[in-house]
Design a protein around this nucleic acid. Structure first.
Lengths: 222, 222
DNA sequence: CGAGGTTTTCGACTACTGGTCGATAACCCG
DNA sequence: CGGGTTATCGACCAGTAGTCGAAAACCTCG
């Protein structure tokens, strides 16, 4: 009667919009609906290892810049005809990667999801909310941005991920002050028409770092 | 081969220190070690319902002011002789409650845990970290404080929960400005020795509210 | 009843961070 | 070299938090 599955919402900015990787179910229940990649936990696996294994069938795992656990859902009726608890993950792929994906999978804009199987749509919304909040107080942008970028490129990534306008001046100042990004020293060339060449930046770290876990109600600094 | 259990780290400020409710294991494996209350998920339960049912055997659930999911752990070797995935919860009990607990359970200071069973110590540390960070950007204090309180009483609760000094002036200003607490209008009387009577406050809400999910990188306010 | 002690509360000051916007820099092309 | 374009910088403002001393409101004792 008991079962455990792992699912991942893998997000990537494509064409200036935030997308999620979905997989078209071929069999019932809910055949034809789009669902998250994942599957049953094997006997000797831990949760993180399992989701990596299952994702490897859909995406080159080396493209995954970040992976973290979201939550677990266990409503008995969340999947018909079967009792299964699901632990969901958030995965992030940088904007410059273009992973090979199987024929039955496709990227869908997160703001216009198709009909999804079971509670998978809810999981995608949870993933997007987690990403948006963490972009504000961590360096998680490294997992969406290419290795090197100009500020206007980065702004486009943040705009797509956050779903609202972002001011380049502000973004640059905030990320530099926090030490999240640094200038490489080189500049980018332009297409025809010109304009001042943009400075090229990179993220200083490629693993999650939290920005001073809330100065609010902080301990005395002295 | 598969199993699923739910566990809860129930926290309360007692005697100006943050405590967790632990239960002494009578049987192997790990007999004699202290472990978190919880147990196996039943066939027709969802996760939140299950942890409430299991907690009801240890604490009056009406004393629980807050309950939220922490994370899930599935390392195959986390419990010997048995493959079981655990979903952990954070529970909070207000400082003024004094729940009846069974003989085999006791409150332990979180900064001096006894030998704990399996990975339960790790779960407690995760719970404390979650509480501390949420105290800064949510109104979660409502779940630790009594229904009505003076600022000095509230400061003692925050000090114990956060593990560092808290300035009363600052705390009052921040919580009032955020609309988390309000003055009731009455004042508290003192013991011998006098002093100005303290204003009595209450929390304005008794459910979790997030303080403006990060103005940082926020959308244009105009 | 007033002086001194105690606790709480208020106000002023500072520092830092983020949002906004105009000015300037650096490039292209004709 | 002048005009168009894009990027960057600097200045200004607002909101929030940390700190600290002064004032308020009470008690008790002489």
């Amino acid at each position: 009667m008991c079962g455990h599955e792992v699912l991942a919402a893998v997000l990537q900015v494509r064409d200036d919009r935030l997308h999620v990787l979905l997989w078209r179910r071929a069999i019932d229940p809910d055949a034809g609906a789009w669902s998250l990649p994942g599957g049953d936990l094997a006997a000797d696996e831990h949760l993180g290892g399992s989701i990596r294994r299952q994702l490897a069938e859909k995406v080159d795992v080396r493209e995954l810049a970040h992976l973290e656990q979201l939550d677990s859902r266990g409503r008995p009726e969340r999947v018909p005809d079967r009792r299964v608890v699901a632990t969901s993950y958030l995965g992030l792929v940088p904007v410059d990667a273009d992973p090979q994906v199987p024929d039955d999978t496709a990227w869908h804009p997160t703001d216009a999801l198709p009909r999804t199987a079971f509670d998978h749509g809810e999981i995608v919304r949870t993933a997007v909310a987690r990403l948006r909040s963490k972009l504000s107080y961590t360096n998680l942008g490294f997992a969406l941005a290419p290795p090197e970028f100009t500020m206007s490129e980065l702004v486009k990534v943040y705009r797509a991920a956050l779903g609202h306008d972002v001011d380049p001046t502000n973004l640059q100042r905030i990320l530099v002050r926090r030490g999240q990004i640094e200038a490489t020293g080189s500049t980018a060339r332009h297409g025809p028409g010109g304009g001042r060449p943009a400075a090229i930046y990179r993220f200083t770290a490629r693993a999650l770092e939290v920005t001073d876990p809330f100065a609010v109600l902080g301990p005395p600094r002295g």
